[in-house]
């Protein structure tokens, strides 16, 4: 199961890639595999303020729907509009082209509540 080294992760299988005071978020390989073929992504609106672990988006496959929680708080500054026409980008490339939103971060210290890649790998091993 691919886990990107310099990203951080939540127990709900979202990832966040922090670059200074901005970040990109998406869902992990584990999450996209569990959901199967993704058919629709409900993107957040640009300008929305989200709290850490607050729902900001949702992803649907044929027989499942999953809410996406923001790994950190901040303001949505950009969303991946490619997903509107091609939700399958999440299945094909969940860590790069399948990103969901970009955030202007509110509180950098929140990162301490997230798992780094190694912790996330260990966490995945505890799941079956």
């Amino acid at each position: 199961m691919e886990v990107v080294d310099h990203y951080f992760y939540t127990k709900e299988h979202e990832w966040i890639h922090i670059e200074d005071d901005q970040a990109t978020i998406g869902i992990s390989e584990y999450a996209q595999e569990a959901l199967g073929d993704i058919t629709f992504v409900e993107l957040p609106s640009v300008g929305t303020e989200v709290e850490q672990f607050e729902q900001c988006s949702s992803v649907e496959s044929v027989k499942a729907a999953s809410d996406i929680y923001s790994p950190m708080s901040g303001k949505i500054i950009e969303v991946n509009t490619d997903l509107e026409e091609k939700p399958e980008l999440i299945n094909k490339d969940c860590y790069e082209r399948g990103w969901i939103a970009k955030l202007e971060l509110g509180a950098l210290e929140e990162q301490s509540k997230l798992m780094n890649a190694e912790e996330y790998r260990n966490y995945l091993n505890t799941l079956e």
Binding site: D37, T39, F40, E60, S61, V62, K63, P87, E88
Partner: peptide, 13 residues
Amino acid sequence: MPISRPDEVKAAR
């Protein structure tokens, strides 16, 4: 059957 397994992903996308 009259049809084989349908492509449900296509139906939704």
